[in-house]
Design a protein around this nucleic acid. Structure first.
Lengths: 143, 143
DNA sequence: CTATATACTTGTATTATACAAGCTGCGCAT
DNA sequence: ATGCGCAGCTTGTATAATACAAGTATATAG
C-alpha cells in the first residue's frame, strides 16, 4: 500500500513538530533562544515594532510576546521608544548589543543548518526553502 | 539582497517550529494529542513495542515516553503485555478502542492537512512529502 | 463626561519535555 | 551461589513556552 503525499506530509510534520519541540527547548545553538532570535530578526528586517504588531505577526498571544520583549530589554538587546501619539504604546528598537547577538547567532544557526542539509543538493534546497515558506503561509492562514 | 536557500530554510524552520509548538499544545484536532497519536501510529505500523524502543525511535527521553504510555493505558488505548523472557520489560499492544481512536483521528488530521495544502498542486505535495521525510532523517542524525 | 475599547503587564495554569534518583529484575564473574 | 553492575521502567522535580484571564492606564466615541 503506497503512502499518498498527503499521508506522508501529515505524518512527517507531526514527527517534525514533536522533535523540534524538544530541540528548541533543550538544545541551545548560540546565545539566543528561539523567541529572542525571531523577535530580533523581525525587528532587524522590518523595523521596530510594538508588542501587538509582533504578536499579530507570529500569531502568538500578546502576553507571550510581552514577556519575551521584557526579557530582551532586560538583557539589553532592545530598548523601548514611547509612541508620541499614544501614551500606552511603544516600539522596540534594537541596541548595538542586540544587533551583535543576532549576527553571531545567525551565523551559528546557519552553520548548524548547513550541516543539517549537507545531503541536500542545490535544487532540493531551493525547493525546500520555497515549500516551507508556502507551508508557513498556509499554517498562518488555516490553523 | 537575495535570500539564499539556506537562509530561507533556517528562518522558515524556526518560524514553523514556534508556531507548531503553539498549535500542537493548544489546538486539538481530534481526540488524541500529538504524542498519543504518534505512539499509536508507530504501534499500528511497526507492531507492539516497549518504552525503550519507542524512546529510541522518536529520540525522546525514556521518562517522557513512559508517562505518555501510561496515559495511553489509562485511557484504554493500549495494554501491557509482559515480556516472558524478561521480567522488567513489556510491550504495548493496541486495544480495539485504540485502533478506533487512531483511525478517527487520522481522518481528522488528514482533512486538516488537505485544507492546509489546498494551494499545493500534486507535484508540490510529492516534493514536500519527500523533502520533509529527508529533513526528518537529517534532524535525527544531526541534531 | 462617561462608557467602551486598546496597549500592555502580570498572575495563574497547562503541557511537553529533560535530568536524576529509585526500584526491580537480569546476567556475568568470581 | 552470590554479589555487583547493568538494563527497563517509573516517579520526583525543574524548566520553558505557551494561553487565558484579570488588572492598569490611556485613548476615543457618543
Amino acid at each position: 500500500m503506497e503512502r499518498s503525499p498527503l499521508e506522508a506530509i501529515e505524518l512527517e510534520m507531526t514527527i517534525l513538530s514533536r522533535r523540534l519541540t524538544s530541540i528548541s527547548t533543550y538544545k541551545k545553538y548560540g546565545i539566543l533562544d528561539h523567541s529572542a532570535y525571531l523577535l530580533l530578526h523581525q525587528i532587524a528586517s522590518n523595523g521596530s515594532a510594538g508588542v501587538k504588531a509582533l504578536a499579530d505577526e507570529f500569531h502568538l498571544d500578546i502576553s507571550t510576546i510581552s514577556r519575551q520583549a521584557s526579557a530582551l530589554e532586560q538583557k539589553g538587546y532592545v530598548f523601548r521608544v514611547p509612541d508620541p501619539q499614544d501614551g500606552r504604546a511603544y516600539t522596540l528598537q534594537m541596541t548595538e548589543l542586540g544587533a551583535e547577538a543576532l549576527k553571531s547567532d545567525t551565523e551559528v544557526r546557519r552553520d548548524k543548518f548547513a550541516q543539517l542539509l549537507q545531503d541536500f543538493n542545490e535544487a532540493e534546497r531551493e525547493q525546500l526553502g520555497r515549500l516551507l515558506q508556502k507551508l508557513n503561509d498556509a499554517v498562518f492562514r488555516v490553523m
